[in-house]
Structures are given as C-alpha cells and as structure tokens.
C-alpha cells in the first residue's frame, strides 16, 4: 500500500504545462482531454467545484475536485483525500436511497480525488432569501405576507429532519449548503415576483463534513449551526426559525428529544466542554 502510494508523485510534474489559466490548480488528467474545460464555480478550503458534463454533452454535472496538498506528506495526503471523497459519496448515496433530497452521485475517482454529482439547477437559499428580504424592504412591507418564507422554513426543517431520521448528520448546515431546485414549471410566468422566489424543492448539498451518526448531540449541533447561520446571514428571517424547528419536530421519531438537546447546546455553544 505504502509503496504503491508513492509513484503518482513523480507523475504529477510530467503532465503538460498549465493551459487552464482560469483554474488555480490543474485538474486530473481525465479532464484535460476536454475540448471545453470544466468551468470553475466556487472554491472551498478543501475542494474546487466545477460545472462539467457527465458521459454525454447534454448531461450537466458538478465536479468536486480535491487537489493534493503539497504541504502534506504524499501518503497521508492520498489517504485523507480518498477517505473524504468516499465518505461524502457514501453519505450521498445513502441519502438518495432513503429519499432525502440530495444530488445523485454519478462517478468518482478516489485516487485522483474527484467526485461527480448531479447538477442541481437553481440557487442556494442564502441568495434567494436575501433577494426576497431585499425586495420586501424595497416595497416597504413591514408585517404580514410571510407565508412563503414560513413555507420555505418548514421545507428546510422537514428536509433536515428527514436526513437526521436516516442517521446522517450534515456537519455544516448553512443557508449556502441548502439549495432551491428550480422546477421547469415555475420558471415560466413572472418568476421574479416575491411569491416565486422562495419556490422549489429544498436540496441539501455539500456533504464534505457529513458523517453517519444517530447521536442526538450531533443532530442538535447541526440545528444549532443552522440557527446561527440564519442569525448571522439573515437576521430578519431569524424570528421564523421556530418554523424550521416545528417542521423538524414532526419529521421523524425522536426529533423532540433532539429539540430538547438543542436547548442545552444553545446554552453552551457548539463545542462540548472537555472539563468532564
């Protein structure tokens, strides 16, 4: 195993000089055959996200690439990358199998460090929600008309509850990791009106920090992180967070215990005291 892990290293400089000027690091060899290079969408601490195609030009996909870190020992680097790619893929496949709305896994190569998943057409909740809040402010509505936001909060709560119900915790629940899938039907007429902005199926994305756990503590921390995310990114939507918790409470057996645990977590924060 350890002897095998070393050879890729001298191979890396052998590939052609960087032609993809827009991408900060070179994609794995498979993606260098492409006539049109995958388009960089966003970049996280660990991975780069591209929009690419799967098998046929008409099937879009999201390509998550974890480049090797030059500061890590090559063997450790390979192991960490492999572990993270596989655990993310496993969690996604499990969610999909159990009917939790997540992107489907198309293909992966844990040695090269890439994962190809379904492309979700739509926008993240953070952007949609801010757009909706801004529109409301501009049109001077202070009270009422919150039905759509309430609906969205309930959909988020039930999606998170579903995920927890099958024994998965997300690990990084923020409004940037929740998407609203654009349904073909709803694009049609007046898609920009307030009523339409918050429409769409809630899809959970980015399971890079997810793990399989049924501990109430982990679930409560997931909710707590989401609550804090709402508080800091959309303070005006925070009063409605109770809707999320309400829908969550109905979503699976044992959710109420988690909600009780959430109160403990609120008192002390995300990190458990290590004083014993």
């Amino acid at each position: 195993m350890e002897i095998q892990a070393i050879p890729p290293l001298p191979q890396a400089p052998a590939v052609e000089p960087p032609v993809l000027s827009e991408s900060p690091s070179l994609l794995p060899p498979v993606f260098q055959n492409d006539s049109s290079a995958p388009k960089l969408i966003t970049q996280g601490a660990e991975a780069l996200l591209y929009r690419s195609t799967y098998l046929l030009p008409e099937i879009p996909c999201a390509l998550k690439y974890r480049p090797s870190k030059p500061y890590r020992h090559p063997i450790l680097d390979a192991r960490l990358t492999k572990h993270r790619i596989l655990s993310e893929a496993r969690v996604l496949v499990k969610c999909r199998k159990e009917g939790v709305p997540v992107p489907a896994v198309y293909a992966l190569d844990e040695k090269e460090g890439w994962l190809m998943v379904e492309w979700i057409e739509g926008e993240v909740v953070r952007i949609k929600l801010n757009e909706w809040l801004r529109n409301r402010k501009e049109s001077g509505i202070q009270e009422g008309g919150e039905e759509h936001l309430k609906g969205l909060m309930r959909r988020i709560g039930s999606a998170v509850g579903r995920m927890h119900g099958i024994g998965i915790v997300h690990g990084d629940l923020t409004t940037s990791n929740l998407m609203l899938r654009l349904n073909g039907i709803s694009i049609g007429d007046e898609a920009t009106t307030d009523d339409r902005i918050l429409d769409g199926e809630v899809v959970l994305i980015d399971f890079g920090l997810a793990s399989q756990s049924t501990a109430d503590e982990d679930r409560a921390v997931d909710l707590y992180v989401l609550e804090r995310a709402f508080g800091s990114t959309h303070p005006r939507a925070e009063p409605l967070f109770s809707e999320v918790l309400d829908a969550y409470g109905q979503s699976f057996k044992g959710a109420n215990i988690v909600l009780k645990k959430l109160e403990d977590v609120r008192m002390r924060g995300r990190k458990r005291s290590m004083l014993g």
């Binding site: 496949v93 198309y106 992966l108 844990e110």
Partner: peptide
C-alpha cells in the same frame, strides 16, 4: 441515478 451511485461506489473501502 441510484444504480449509477451504487456502481460508482463499487470498491469503496477504507
């Protein structure tokens, strides 16, 4: 897509 996922995960051990 579920079949595709199952195929992609073949050999996933660590």
């Amino acid at each position: 897509v579920q079949v595709l996922g199952a195929m992609a995960l073949r050999g996933a051990t660590n």
